[in-house]
């Protein structure tokens, strides 16, 4: 029972992470300018990586109540699994720190380099153009 519960929770976390990854990828392709694309990549990437890593960390414990002949053996299993889980969690903390920072640094580099953000006027212009094109057709 324990094994199934852990598997379901960690599977849900990993699948949720994949959904956010898909969102980030779609945003990267579909958003109109540099800044919104970076926004989607930075946000989606960070959350999805953290979710997947947490799912993996949780999955380490799925076999915790396997046949243990003594309490000591049980704690031996638990120690090994806990160590791996802590390492995976440490990776997710590192990503939580570094990924938004790198997104920020890229954004700033783009701003310093004179990238024009996408504004309402751009949107109006786009719509007008599309309107003309469809009218022409």
């Amino acid at each position: 029972m324990f094994e199934i519960t852990i598997s379901i929770i960690s599977g849900a976390l990993i699948c949720g992470g994949l959904v956010f990854f898909l969102g980030a990828a779609v945003g990267l392709v579909r958003f109109p300018d540099f800044y919104t694309r970076m926004h989607s990549a930075g946000k989606g990437d960070t959350l999805s990586t953290i979710m997947i890593l947490l799912g993996i960390a949780l999955y380490q414990f799925h076999d915790l109540f396997r046949e243990a002949h003594s309490l000591e053996e049980f704690f031996e299993h638990f120690k090994i699994e806990l160590l791996v889980a802590i390492k995976v969690t440490a990776i997710s903390v590192l990503i939580m720190l570094t990924s938004p920072t790198s997104t920020h640094a890229l954004m700033e580099a783009g701003y310093d380099d004179g990238m024009e953000p996408f504004t309402c006027e751009d949107e109006d212009a786009d719509e007008n153009q599309n309107g003309k094109e469809s009218a022409g057709q």
Binding site: L94, L97, T98, T101, A105, E108
Partner: peptide, 19 residues
């Protein structure tokens, strides 16, 4: 070149580099 290093980047690097 920018005159001053960026605060967010510097702080994060200060956190990450020792680790």
């Amino acid at each position: 070149l920018p005159e001053e290093p960026d605060l967010i980047v510097t702080q994060t690097c200060n956190l990450v580099i020792p680790v």
